[in-house]
Design a binder for these strands. Structure first.
Length: 424
RNA sequence: GGAGAGGUGUCCGAGUGGUUUAAGGAGCACGCUUGGAAAGCGUGUGUACUCCAAAAGGGUACCGGGGGUUUGAAUCCCUUCCUCUCCGCCA
């Protein structure tokens, strides 16, 4: 969430920038500022009240000690009035803070000036499209047919064991998954990211830390008995490593990567978008996360985009790079780039990566701060993350684009990881 | 899962209702000392909110989290989380 300081110091500019998201936040922001003013007023009253009550309490102690019980009794009555006042003020303050917090949760991150105007994904700005479009033979199949033909992914078996959206990878299908994971992790390691194997279930605090809670609660699977959530992305455990942490400026950059399965309820999805591997409840992803100095985060975002682009290039998949428009930009992001690969048989662009700079928006909730050397004051750090990469749609594109009458070829760069070069 | 012991600042550690305004030690920073360093001595040393135009300087909260008792809570009570020891179960 945004800081109160930022909101009050940049009110008009903020309202203007948020219009890129096609929503007018004037009313909410005014409410926030009003609420904050009453918060301050109440807090000052409460602090004064407490301060006086403390002084009396001390006096009473002294009176008792010197045997002046009668005077102490009088003082006690005086203290009782303060106590009641304190209780009332404290309740007020708690309510105000709660309301203020709820209002703050409503305001999304400030779009970067490069974010194009637009309402939906149709308005995203295409920055470039590269890679050769494959020419498929005339009996080419979509990946869900290929999966069946070569018996490498069994969707029906997944239905039986769990339900829709939980495919079973078999034989070379499973091996290819493992090869992709290893390839992506190896590339991340080469780029200087520290590999992490985080927990796949997280607690409520972590959910709040990265912003999945409270608004996206319905998108996460929950282990209610223990009040834990299955992670929708490795971003959650990775970023929460730094929840409530004060770094020093020379700790930057912090670069983490992790392979994890991701679990998403995808409530409300339906139709051809969810066919085959296009949208799943459980899928594998390699995530990259950076914690950076505010002055470096813009460059870091470009570097991360570059990293992901190279992965796709090495797999020789046709792709395009998009800058998300205001209407498609996620709540927590200031600037997001998406990579889409072309899945040739279904003739569809599939989103395989989303790379974002959150600036201080996550850090504020996480209380992820740092100090400049020799500085006493803390500042919020910047966080960024990106998929590098999500597997199922990459797999879908690989199967479709690399199919030949003889079988499905394996991209050269993966062969060292698969140990085979053809699925037949 | 059962029984027990614990959770105090950057770290160690004292502290069972009132000079705790969290002792003491270590670490760290700065200063003195020194040719330089160590030792020694001195000073300082968290986070958040807030008052003040700012600085200086105040106020409030925080002893795992939440709640309660009390004029007053690190200390007593309730609740919850976590750690350790033993037992049980287990890859």
């Amino acid at each position: 969430m945004l800081t109160l300081k930022y909101i009050s110091e940049n009110k008009d500019q903020l309202i203007e920038r948020l219009k890129v998201r096609n929503v007018d936040y004037t009313a909410t922001i005014n409410q926030i500022l009003d609420k904050d003013a009453s918060r301050k007023g109440t807090q000052v009253k409460l602090d004064n009240c407490r301060s006086q009550a403390k002084a009396i309490a001390k006096e009473i102690g002294q009176l008792f000690k010197t045997g002046k019980a009668a005077e102490a009794g009088e003082a006690k009555q005086k203290a009782a009035a303060f106590k009641e006042n304190e209780k009332a003020l404290n309740e007020q303050l708690t309510d105000i803070e709660k309301e203020l917090n709820e209002l703050l949760f409503l305001v999304p991150n400030v779009p970067h000036k490069d974010v194009p105007k637009g309402k939906s994904d149709a308005d995203n700005l295409e920055l470039r499209a590269e890679g050769k479009m494959p020419k498929l033979h005339n009996k080419a199949l979509p990946h869900w047919e290929l999966a069946k033909k070569y018996d490498i992914i069994d969707f029906e078996l997944g239905n039986k064991i769990t339900g829709a959206g939980f495919p079973v990878y078999k034989g070379k299908g499973a091996q290819l998954q493992r090869a992709l994971i290893n390839f992506f992790l190896a590339e991340a390691n080469k780029a200087g990211y520290t590999e992490i194997m985080p927990p796949l279930l997280v607690n409520e605090d972590s959910g709040f830390g990265t912003g999945q809670l409270p608004d996206k609660e319905g998108q996460m699977y929950q282990a209610t008995e223990d009040n834990l959530y299955l992670i929708p992305t490795a971003e959650v455990p990775l970023t929460n490593i730094y929840r409530n942490v004060i770094l020093s400026a020379d700790d930057f950059p912090i670069k983490l990567t992790a392979y994890t399965p991701c679990f998403r309820r995808e409530a409300g999805s339906y139709g051809k978008d969810v066919r085959g591997l296009n949208r799943l409840h459980q899928f594998d992803k390699i995530e990259i996360v950076q914690v950076q100095h505010p002055s470096k985060s813009a460059d870091t975002l470009d570097i991360m985009v570059n990293h992901v682009e190279n992965l796709i290039k090495k797999l020789k998949l046709p792709y395009r790079l998009l800058r998300l428009c205001g209407g498609d930009l996620s709540f927590t992001s200031t600037l997001t780039y998406d990579f889409e690969v072309f899945s040739a048989a279904q003739e569809k662009w599939l989103e395989v990566s989303s790379i974002s700079n959150f600036k201080t928006f996550q850090a504020n909730r996480l209380k992820l701060r740092f100090k400049e050397k020799g500085d006493k004051k803390t500042q919020l750090a910047h966080t960024l993350n990106g998929s590098a990469l999500a597997l199922p749609r990459i797999l879908a594109a690989l199967l479709e684009n690399y199919q030949t009458p003889e079988g499905i070829k394996i991209p050269e760069v993966l062969q060292v990881y698969t140990g085979f070069d053809l699925i037949d």
